[in-house]
């Protein structure tokens, strides 16, 4: 067991990264960013209501880890979930229409931004209570271990959730029972408006498993290749039957906690510096251009293509009708039993 800082894996994997892989990551990250920008726009127009937490800035985390996942692996996350859904292949139209609360949404308009699911893509939500998805994710891994199917579960949570008690109850049982679960701490450094240093006694969240014997490492979450490499290592650990693994992925959200957050707890310069110097999409774009894997024109074509997908999702989300009023009374019980 070793909690350690590691990035050598990333450098090693860069050497043999293929053009196709790089283009896939570029495309997947760009889809998330453009989708989220569009969601922000629709929110501004009043078409999306309530809470809406954008993933802009954190794209490399989920895209890198999805690159390390295999078919049948599961994922579960918090309310900042749009990126996770797009990265595991859920239909952008269905996601956007759920944001607008329409019949064509993945939850038929009844879940909203924070509550979406896909059995087909093994995406288990979308959970609105901070930290609640952590035991749930370990439970998915428990089912996989019970069924002896070799699957792993990516359980995402933030630096804020990392202070919830149920996280440590879960660490204990996951280690005790050697559950195949990867705890991905997306450390974007702010729990809503509280900077990590104001909320957390020790800054290194990847060491939080040490007391339970869970290995952990810190990962550069603005580098999709580093994330993928760390993900592969964690997946191998879990699949080998060695129990849980912690990845603290250092990332940054460019937008506020939710749409209504003015983000006065950090400076504009801090955000600007991350955007200019560490942007994950720019990073891959530079790798593609420097490696002569793509030309500016080819990347422009991809941008256009992604924009079209996102616009199509927005059109669908506007045109899909609101759910039928009878939907108020359905899906409360699986057997549609009479109401109590």
């Amino acid at each position: 067991m070793a909690a350690r800082k590691g990035s050598e894996a990333s450098n090693a994997s860069k050497a043999n990264i293929s053009k196709d892989d790089l283009l896939t990551y570029y495309r997947d990250m760009l889809l998330i960013r453009r989708f989220e920008e569009k969601a922000g726009q629709l929110y501004g127009m009043g078409l999306i209501g309530g809470f809406c937490h954008l993933y802009i800035g954190q794209e490399a985390v989920v895209v890198g880890l999805e690159a390390a996942a295999e078919d049948g692996d599961k994922r579960i996350t918090s309310y900042r979930d749009h990126g996770h859904m797009l990265a595991c292949g859920m239909d952008p139209k269905g996601v956007m229409a759920e944001l607008t609360g329409r019949e064509g949404g993945l939850s038929k308009g009844k879940g909203g931004s924070m509550h979406m699911f896909s059995k087909e893509k093994h995406f288990y939500g979308g959970h609105g209570i901070v930290g609640a998805q952590v035991p749930l994710g370990a439970g998915l891994a428990f089912a996989d271990k019970y069924n002896e199917n070799g699957r792993v579960t990516f359980t995402y949570f933030g630096d804020g959730a990392a202070n919830q008690g149920q996280v440590y109850e879960t660490f204990n049982m996951a280690a005790l029972w050697k559950l195949p679960v990867i705890f991905v701490i997306e450390n974007n450094q702010y729990a809503m408006g509280t900077a990590q240093k104001r909320s957390t006694s020790t800054p290194d969240l990847y060491t939080r498993g040490e007391a339970f014997g869970i290995p952990g490492e810190i990962v550069d979450g603005m580098d999709v290749l580093a994330v993928k490499a760390a993900g592969e290592k964690a997946v191998a650990h879990c699949r080998a039957g060695d129990g849980p693994y912690i990845l603290e992925v250092k990332t940054y959200r460019y937008r506020g906690h939710s749409m209504s957050d003015p983000a006065k707890y950090r400076t504009r310069e801090e955000v600007q510096k991350m955007r200019e110097e560490r942007d994950a999409i720019e990073h891959v774009r530079e790798l593609l251009l420097a490696g002569k894997h793509a030309t500016e024109d080819e990347l422009k074509a991809i941008d256009k293509e992604i924009k079209a997908v996102v616009n199509e999702s927005a059109e669908f989300a506007k045109e899909s009708p609101e759910p039928a009023l009878s939907e108020l009374w359905t899906d409360i019980y699986a057997d549609d039993a009479a109401q109590a």
Binding site: Y124, A132, P135, L136, A143, Y146, E169, T170, N172, M173
Partner: peptide, 19 residues
């Protein structure tokens, strides 16, 4: 272990997972 919040959550997750 004596950890109701945690094991209730794990059990619910396992039900989502088909058990």
């Amino acid at each position: 272990p004596i950890t109701e919040h945690g094991f209730a959550g794990i059990a619910v997750g396992s039900a989502f997972g088909g058990l």
